[in-house]
Simulated scan of single mutants.
Amino acid sequence: MDISLNIPVLFGFLKVSIAVYGVNPSIDSPVTNVTALEGNTVTLPCVVKYLGEFKVVWISPSSVALTLDDRSITDDARYLVERPFSQEWNLNIMNVTHQDAGQYRCQVNTVPVTSKTVNLAVLVPAKIIKDISSRDVILKEGETLFLQCNATGFPQPTVKWYKLQLGQKQDIHRSGDVLIIPNVTRQTAGTYECVAYNGKSDSKKTRVIVQFAPKVSLLSKRIGQNVGKETILDCKITANPPSDMYWLKGNTNLDTPNKGKYQMRLYGSNIDNTVKTLSLAISDLQKDDFGNYTCYARNSLGKDFDTVLVYDYAIHFTTPASIDTSQTNLQINHSKATGLSADVSKGNHYMMTSSILLLYITMVFIIF
């Protein structure tokens, strides 16, 4: 014998039924925790045994009925009841969002209500909001570098900073949304990468350009060469922005006159093109070509120069061995001369002493 009580619940959709079969409906477990990745389809499980004529309904975190038995009763088409087996009343949520997270209830209209709670956590992958994060930066030596990396996600992502060196990611041991480097130098320049991570990761690269005045350096300050030969002068220039570069002899710019005598070549020597070599080739050296040559560089932040002396190798060349020999002969002659003077001095002293002694003996003999 069945006894049915009609009680209006859940907006009039449910009828509370009591079936006297000796066994009441049961749900698999009181609480289940489910984690989903935003954008995926998530399944909230609910297994009901001995349902009989009772009804199953899914309730949202905001206490809104989503389904009745296997039918959706909401305008949101993302909710669907899935029943791979007769006792399963799983709720599928398609394209799940962070706003879908919360406490869902699978209920059977018994008295009292039989209910199961499913706690849904939605993982939102880490994402860097590039529009409000730092773009490429240009600053001068001595200024302070500020880089910002705005990351969202759930749970809140952690942010770490790296610097790319020759294609390798180098950990600079800085973390947080903001990177601050005071008093930057030219070595600070490069590409920096922020990485946001909360189980999923996102990254963004930012190029840092540091500007500075030119620095001129020469491999040698003195170069010797013979008349009629060719010599090459190399000058290394480090500058950013790029500088005006040229060689001078006296006050004459060698970039334009006498192209046959002088030839300049410019070479780049690093990735960011801040280091260059300005080479000056001087052909068929003549006497008036010897002298000081100045490498000069100038940009908007300053200037620098350095000078090398080109001298006649034949005139300035002296054999070290001949220098040593002359010094040795000088010392020997000096020693011989000194010894000779000493011998003469000693002889004169001896002869004088003998004469005085002889005179003394003669005087004594006369007296006695």
Rank of each mutant, 00 (worst) to 15 (best):
L10Q: 03
E193N: 00
V310H: 06
L166F: 14
P25I: 08
F368V: 12
G268Y: 15
S217K: 09
D171M: 02
N273M: 14
Q165D: 05
Q327T: 12
G52I: 09
V9Q: 12
T35Y: 07
R298L: 08
L145H: 01
S220L: 05
L123F: 01
R298T: 14
Y350A: 12
F13P: 01
G190A: 00
V122Y: 07
I18R: 13
V23F: 02
F11N: 05
S133L: 00
K140G: 00
D324R: 11
K140M: 11
R298F: 10
V57E: 07
V31L: 12
Y360R: 14
G260V: 09
N119F: 12
L179D: 08
S355P: 00
L179H: 08
Q263V: 04
R174F: 15
F305W: 08
D100P: 08
K261D: 11
Q327A: 09
A101E: 09
V56L: 02
L359C: 12
K336G: 00
T152I: 05
I361W: 07
G228I: 06
V20H: 01
L248F: 12
G260Q: 14
D131T: 14
N40V: 08
F11G: 00
Q87L: 11
S134K: 02
S354K: 13
C106K: 01
I27F: 11
L358G: 06
Q331L: 05
I172S: 06
V34R: 08
L218F: 01
N6Q: 11
C295M: 09
N24Q: 12
I332N: 05
T238P: 02
I27Y: 13
D28Y: 04
A101L: 06
W89P: 03
T206N: 07
S4N: 09
H334R: 07
L340W: 12
N92A: 11
I3Q: 03
T231L: 13
K49C: 02
L120C: 03
E88Q: 09
R186A: 10
L330I: 05
T188C: 05
Y79E: 01
S134H: 08
T319C: 03
N109T: 10
G142P: 04
I93R: 01
V42D: 05
V47M: 02
S203Q: 12
V111L: 15
V34N: 10
H173P: 05
A121G: 04
L358W: 13
A337R: 11
E38W: 07
T188R: 07
V159A: 03
N92Q: 12
K116I: 09
V124L: 09
P125K: 01
I209G: 01
G190F: 06
L68E: 11
P45A: 05
S279T: 14
P182D: 03
